[in-house]
Amino acid sequence: MSGRRAICSVLALAAVVAAGLASANELGDPDKGAEVFKKCTSCHQIGGGAKNRVGPQLNGIFGRPAGSLDGANYSKSMLRAGDDGLIWTEETLDAYIENPKALISKTRMSFRGISDIKERSHLLAYLRVFSDDPANIPEAEPTATATDHDLDPAILALKGDPEYGEYLASECLTCHQISGNSDGIPAITGWPTEDFVVAMHAYKRKLRPHPVMQMMAGRLSDEEIAAIAAYFKDLE
């Protein structure tokens, strides 16, 4: 399974690089982004001498796995997203800044988000200045038009059938261990239902980068995702 995961990671990186080449010059104005960043300074620092505060310092954020900075205080949901393969790119940062809890449920970040796509574009351009050799970073394509990343409350309200979920989960268990142990692949046993549903829909919208999970989530209906979530939630 570790070899399979490595192959998937290479494929994901290749896709990201290809997308980044087409979008390298589409970010906003970093000087305007410095003004937008003032909304973030109560929790985050960036630049020379930046330290972790309530949130992590943001130097080198592009290309960083979620929840991976030493010494930062992350929520369990953020750590889980990082273990699951979430990388901070133009696309995923844009979605997170627009509505943090729509991408990472139960994140510690209480910020309500920035709905204006131009402000987000300027902010991303500013953050990118503090990443290594920003002109050559292979980010995913940035969000070009306003996108609603919120899940319909009706989707989160769906009550999944655990027995049906057990039937559907057989494909999940070809990689994930029913015992809850992890061996190069994150455990999903005992996940809160909302976290599971949000994660699967993030794969479905291709905000989370794993190509195999994107394919599998894309084949599932809302009801099927709810059923699988209900099954894994109750496993011990």
Rank of each mutant, 00 (worst) to 15 (best):
S115F: 14
R120Q: 10
E141T: 12
D116T: 15
G165K: 01
S115L: 15
A102F: 01
A146N: 08
A102P: 04
K101P: 13
R128M: 10
P153E: 09
D152F: 03
D161S: 07
S105Y: 01
L151T: 04
N136Y: 03
L156V: 13
S110V: 07
A135R: 09
R120S: 12
L127W: 04
N99Q: 12
T145F: 13
A135V: 03
A154K: 14
L103Q: 10
A144S: 14
A95I: 07
L93A: 00
I117S: 06
P138Y: 00
K101L: 14
P134N: 04
P134K: 05
L103K: 06
A125L: 07
D132Q: 10
P153W: 08
H122M: 10
E141H: 13
F130W: 11
A95K: 05
P162Y: 09
S115D: 15
E163F: 04
A157M: 14
E166A: 15
A146H: 14
N99L: 11
L124T: 06
E139M: 04
S121W: 06
E141K: 12
A144D: 12
S131Q: 05
T145L: 11
S115V: 15
D94A: 11
K101C: 12
T143P: 02
I155Q: 05
A154M: 05
L168M: 04
L151G: 03
D152N: 10
P153V: 09
K159P: 04
A95Y: 07
I104S: 00
H122A: 11
N99F: 09
E119T: 11
L103E: 09
L124I: 07
Y167G: 06
A125H: 08
A125M: 11
A102E: 08
L124V: 04
A146T: 12
M109P: 03
R108A: 11
A125R: 04
D150P: 00
S110H: 04
P142D: 06
D152T: 03
L123Y: 01
D161K: 04
E141F: 14
